[in-house]
Nucleic acid binder design. Sequence first.
DNA 1: ATCCTCCCCTAC
DNA 2: TAAGGTAGGGGAGGAT
Length: 422
Amino acid sequence: DANFIQNYYASSRLHHLSTFKIELQNYVIELRRQRGLTSESTGSARASGRRCIMYVDFDCFFVAVGLRSRPDLRGKPVAVSHCQNPSEASSSDIASCNYEARAAGVSNGMVVGRARQLCPNLIVIPYEFEQYREASRTLYQILVATTPQVQVGGMDEAILDVTNLINDQSADKGAQTKGVSRESVCAKMAESLRQQVWEATQCQVSVGISENILLAKLATRWAKPHGQYYLPIEDAPTRLAPLPVKHIPGIGETTARKLADAGITTIRDLRNQPLARLQDMLGPKAGLNIQRMALGQDDRPLVTSPPRHSVGTEIGWGVRFETPAQVDKFLRDLCQEVHTRMATASVRGKSVTLRLKRRQEGAGEARKHLGHGLCDNFSKSATLPQLTREADALYQTCSRLLGQLAVPPVDLRAVGIQVQKL
DNA sequence: ATCCTCCCCTAC
DNA sequence: TAAGGTAGGGGAGGAT
Ligand SMILES: Nc1ccn([C@H]2C[C@H](O)[C@@H](COP(=O)(O)OP(=O)(O)OP(=O)(O)O)O2)c(=O)n1
Ligand SMILES: [Mg+2]
């Protein structure tokens, strides 16, 4: 099908999630430039001691945007998904659900069929990607107008370093005790941001506030929905101790299970482990990082203009081929897509990786309609003849890699390419 | 030690 | 029907 890739991307939420993030990073740089703030000192460069970090995150973002034009649905359980029928067997993903739906056990990423079992009166509304894009951009306009020290966390979340702003305002107020003053000045600033975002977007954000990125992010959990929460760093040991390890950013499903197998389930457990044991399980750097986080320690500065290290594209849905010629055509189209993105970003690369998924021996049809199902992954990289972004050069090299990986077209379930060494 | 390739994992 | 992408951190194991 000639326009498969374009049509697919037009409907893929995960594609939009990823590409909006890149676009927002560039947008923030542009907003800073417009305000003549490019070379502003860092948010905490002047300060030697305590930082003040704010984590700003829209509440059930896609649903909140969708409900603006559907006020009659407020108060009812609502989810955003492609699902068009009332089936309890739908394998369509829920991108976002509101708090009414969550009360029934529904969560983001769940398939609609399962969600309907938990919440039979769940209402499904469609995606509105352009509206999400607009709301995100409005959020970032407001944030950059407050401080240039903004890190893009994603389409619906951002991190601010307001240390210098807070210190200046605390100093202006003169005599007040430092600790109390800082907290109240932070709280006022967060109130103001939430109000501005609400007025400009008719969507709510929550704000977590603390002294580093980790604690500010964890604080947003207590801030939601549509609230704010200041987590004093002194309280961190007590507040973090009982939380499941999965709350630490970087610990996902797989790592949490691995830790559970070793009897480690809470952040307290993580903190009490000998460092060497965590490092044996997770590796030297990961073990150290995770134990530091368990202690509430995080000295990472904001990254306000992250350098780009790779440009890639991958499709793992609807991939069902019969002939090598079909695979070849698909690969050509992917190379063209990457070429276009590299041109937009004004980058060229010296190395390319081909990534494939191959249907596992004996795996039946995927649980998800036209999904990749159970697969084995393969990747192979090669150096490009020169620093390039030309679609044809990418294709020549990828085509060779495809031959080397030798996956029968019928067994292919995903194809992707990624260019690096930019 | 440090690099390289081929992975796995994570977050939105 | 359904739209399971994307970039970065980092580990294992081998080469230098
Ligand atoms: N599995 C997921 C998770 C998220 N998203 C999209 C839809 C979300 O609205 C948006 C932001 O993700 P969040 O994790 O911030 O979730 P929400 O904003 O929906 O809820 P909240 O932040 O209130 O917990 O990303 C998605 O498509 N699929
Ligand atoms: Mg959110």
